[in-house]
């Protein structure tokens, strides 16, 4: 045995032992830290958590991933919950998780500030910021009059090869389709999806891709949450974009408004700190911060909306209660698959 290999063997031994210690310490359900599963972009959440830590002295651990994935994880872990709070970018997934019985009600008195349509009936989750599903376009390539004025216009063959949508697995997309089902029925929805796909849209992994594509003129328009449009307006380049709020006529569906919010996990390792986090995030000050950091729209009417955004109430909104979306969540994925919208 050469000296070299003894050294290497020792090195590996240290690695294994060190790893075992670090792994079990960091991921073994530590009661000292508030563990937050987040389906939102880390950059949007981090500033708020930093402020929370500063004000309360509670340490947080932010574990980011896809909301749908983390939601399913919460259900799988329900016999031994690992997380305290769940920040999701979609009401449908929060409602799905609630129906699986893994959430506990938020006790904060500030919950009442949020309009009832944007929170769970039993108070287990609450929206913190709003996002409207809009059609963002590049005015250099297409005029406002030529743009589709309704989601259902996306099926029109004249828009062949001209727009982008996200993958079917995107939580916002699933909830949007669920809302369309609620409005138009299953058959019409399947037909709509088929016709949209026949138009050969670019299918992206997320909305970030779409806003960049529209900004750079790779596609004429795309279906996004409105804050992606706001974010693109603030880019140093390719920021000449505009947006259509579809389905505004009285007989039409209206714009589907979804929320990002917080849900509290039942029997989590650190329930009191979790309640404190909910109470903190529900404060107007923090909600204002959301609109500044991620450029979403506030749910509380009193909060002032920056001039680039349309506040809730100034456009016609689809009358679909968010707390009915969870019921059809998994089902909607199947319907989308049936229509050929699978990935």
């Amino acid at each position: 045995m050469t000296k070299n290999s003894i050294f290497l063997a020792a090195l590996f031994l240290v690695l294994v032992l060190g790893g075992a210690i670090i792994f079990s310490r960091n991921y073994g359900g530590d009661a000292q830290e508030l563990i937050i599963y987040s389906g939102r972009n880390e950059d949007f959440v981090r500033p708020l958590l930093d402020k929370f830590e500063e004000e309360t002295g509670i340490r947080t651990r932010l574990l980011s991933g896809s909301a749908a994935n983390l939601g399913h994880r919460l259900v799988e872990e329900s016999h031994r919950p690992q997380a305290d709070a769940f920040l999701a970018n979609d009401a449908g997934i929060m409602e799905f998780v609630r129906r699986e019985g893994v959430l506990t009600p938020i006790t904060s008195d500030r919950l009442e500030d949020i309009p009832a349509e944007f929170r769970a009936e039993d108070g287990t989750w609450s929206g913190l910021s709003g996002r409207a599903r809009v059609l963002m376009y590049n005015p250099e390539l297409i005029d406002a009059e030529e743009m589709p004025q309704s989601i259902f216009d996306l099926a029109d063959p004249q828009y062949h090869d001209q727009f982008a949508i996200t993958r079917s697995g995107n939580a916002s997309m699933v909830s949007h389709i669920a809302a369309i089902r609620n409005y138009a029925g299953d058959e019409a929805t399947v037909e709509l999806i088929r016709d949209i796909l026949a138009n050969n849209p670019a299918i992206t992994r997320g909305h970030s891709d779409i806003r960049r594509m529209v900004g750079a003129g790779e596609v004429k328009f795309g279906l996004v949450n409105n804050y992606y449009y706001h974010l693109q307006l603030h880019e140093p380049r390719h920021n000449q974009v505009a947006a259509i709020y579809p389905d505004q006529e009285p007989e039409q569906m209206g714009v589907f408004v979804n929320v990002a919010g917080i849900a509290l996990v039942d029997d989590g390792p650190n329930p009191e700190a979790a309640q404190q986090l909910a109470h903190f995030l529900l404060a107007q000050e923090q909600q204002k911060m959301f609109t500044e950091v991620s450029k979403e729209i506030p749910l509380i009417y009193e909060i002032e909306v920056p001039d680039y955004a349309l506040p809730i109430g100034e456009f016609r909104q689809a009358e679909i209660p968010l707390n009915e979306l969870g019921e059809v969540w998994d089902d909607t994925l199947e319907l989308m698959e049936q229509a050929g919208y699978a990935e």
Binding site: H72, R167, G169, I203, D330, E337, A342, E343
Partner: peptide
């Protein structure tokens, strides 16, 4: 394959696994 947004069995299995509760598909 996934970065280039091309769909094969592998990428499809990945998305089905991450986005669904029912993983039998």
């Amino acid at each position: 394959v996934a970065m280039l947004r091309y769909n094969t069995f592998v990428s499809s299995i990945y998305y089905q696994t991450t986005g669904r509760f029912d993983r039998s598909g």
